[in-house]
Write a protein that binds this DNA or RNA. Structure first.
Lengths: 250, 250
DNA sequence: GAGTGGTCTAGACCACCTC
DNA sequence: AGGTGGTCTAGACCACTCA
């Protein structure tokens, strides 16, 4: 089974349940634990690894909600026959292109400091006139535009950021370097016809459809740290959503 | 605070942690627990409600991952300042219209038994020639088309379903009545220009943009119980996605 | 009946935060 | 120093499944 290869480091600051779940995850994703096979019972695993059953359960709970493992009372814990492809949220053709070896680049069209208009202040739940960074970027792949991105960031979130920073690093990577951790985001996905300037940036014709995303991102304190209004070439972009519900999906 | 109003029924088959999390959720969503206020410590709550701390923690864990509550070591558990609007996944203008009192209806355009083509068999991970229900419906609001929905369901999932059933009940409600619980779904959202027959069903002009959704739904055993290919009028529809990530969002 | 996961308890120690 | 949440333990009883 490969389960006996799991190693726990009790002196590590990494929680035991996390060490367990990560190593089991690796075994599942690596194929050492075959889909459809059952794991030993929780009592047996506890004895095998020398930890208590709640610790085992916590590790398996994480894998179950991630869809890697399915548990049934009276039966046991089975490696999922159809593991979900990605644990959470969002992916895109963009990622697929990257995976195929194409080089994505980001080009900053403009970056400026502005003051929040009435409308922006309302959308970002800040006071009118607050300092913002206004950022317009285009994401290119093999030289052709894939996404046109407009973002507004409270100036004190990234006080020292320069144009060059945004060429090299992602927005959220820059925030993390400053100790600000985006933790939740809400995104509205829609579609419409490309406007003229959008079409030219994306190298598509007028009248072509685009996907639009309106995203607000918050840090751990619930503060809005980014408002993004993005436009994607619909012929080269898809959003992936994964949903889970124990009681069933509507 | 309203917390003393929480009532636990120990004789109920409903787990204590779930009784707790649901009642606290109601208090938060109902405004009895104001955003930004702190709950009592877990030890105090355990004493207040007469349950052990792990039980309290399990309830609060659920609310924390749902975004209703934020916890910080050393500080306490705070009602989220900006609770996420809906606990999971997906919503739409459609829901908003319903909330505003408009009546949605579903009309079945066609329903038939077919055999899985090579392509369908591959997409649904079943054998070619397997019995399927092919369903085409249109979702209307105030008499105008909002969504055109095509679904494929393995015939043994809903062996007795009739056209009328689909007019009245949702697809997944019918499955649940049969003891089949859709638990996970993966959905790809895209956009394109409406085809002619789509435009006529949706009462939009040719050349208008539509949102497309390609959804596969699985039951608790990981079996695909529904393949949906849906088309939405982009001028009346939005998808909502919520993302959370403890370590930060990409 | 034997084994499974689901729930719950009553403790313990620790890292972190504020005062 | 005192309180908070984060982790872990070693038990217990139960509902469910299968033989």
């Amino acid at each position: 089974m490969g389960l006996e290869a799991v190693q726990l480091v009790r002196t590590s600051p990494v929680p035991l349940f996390f060490q367990l779940s990560e190593q089991i995850r690796t075994l599942v994703e690596g194929g050492q634990l075959k889909p459809g096979t059952f794991l030993p019972g929780e009592h047996d695993l506890a004895a095998l690894w020398g930890v208590s059953r709640p610790t085992i359960r916590r590790a398996l709970d994480e894998l179950a909600t991630a869809g890697l493992v399915q548990r049934r009372r009276g039966l046991g814990t089975m490696v999922a026959r159809h593991p979900i492809r990605r644990s959470s949220s969002l992916s895109s053709l963009f990622d697929d292109l990257v995976r195929l070896g194409h080089q994505p680049t980001t080009q900053v069209l403009s970056m400026s400091r502005i003051r929040a208009s009435e409308e922006l202040a309302h959308e970002m739940q800040i006071r009118r006139g607050a300092d913002l960074i206004s950022l317009r970027r285009v994401r290119l792949i093999d030289g052709s535009g894939l996404a046109l991105m407009q973002n507004f960031i409270p100036a004190d979130v990234l006080p020292l950021a320069t144009r060059g920073d945004f060429e090299v690093h992602g927005l959220y990577a820059l925030m993390r370097e400053r100790g600000i951790f985006p933790t939740t985001a809400m995104q509205l996905i829609g579609a419409r016809i490309a406007q003229r300037h959008e079409a030219s940036h994306l190298s598509i014709s007028e009248g072509s459809p685009v996907l639009t995303a309106h995203r607000t991102t918050r840090d751990q304190d619930g503060r809005i740290v980014d408002l993004g209004k993005h436009v994607y070439d619909a012929s080269h972009y898809l959003f992936e959503m994964n949903m889970t519900a124990d009681k069933g999906i509507s």
